[in-house]
Amino acid sequence: MAEAFLLIAAATGATLLLTVSAALIGIVLGAPLVLLAQSRSAILRGIYTVFVHVVRGVPALVWLFIAFFGLAELGIVLPALASAVLTLGIIAIATMAEIYRGGLAAIRQGQYEAGWALSLGRWSLAKDIIFPQLFRAVSPTTATYIVGLLKDSALASIIGVPEIVYVTGLEVQSLGHGLELFLFAGLIYLALSIPLGVVSRVIHVRLTRRYAVL
């Protein structure tokens, strides 16, 4: 039993790896995607809307199976871990783009106008005025979403990625004690998400204490 707990705890690394990689993919690649939503071209905006609705309208498990079983059928054989990162990463891109879109919508028109009236260049307007406010507007939502990704990463167990839930399942299969072991697995998730929540709350409070809330 003690050994099972240790093995499960050790699998936390894989869970964090999945979570962090997917989060980074989403945070980085969601930014160019949201530019599509801001485009003047109705076609580009349409592509954005369809992409976001399709990616988020289908359960992650379906994408995971497509990435793991489906692509293999087409001759693209990905390891389970890569399939899981790819799947969670693409969903994270769509979700982060939506979070960015919401953050941009929260920035008042007057901020752009003040920048234009001061003759600020496009780059300066983006870098000095919009981005810092966007960052503050999206960080709480992003933190919440990363906690969501942490839980979504459990999906990877279904295709055999040795993260927390997969290892727990193996141990339960050989030892029994399903209740204790799955509760222990659950406690790890709680233990991981509580600090993230606290950190995001502290950041949020610190930012809002000083700056006007958007």
Binding site: G178, F182, G186, Y189, S193
Partner: peptide, 17 residues
Amino acid sequence: GLPILVLLLLVYRGLPS
């Protein structure tokens, strides 16, 4: 706080114990 997957397994494979 728990992944839904863990809730499912807790009920289906944990409660029998």
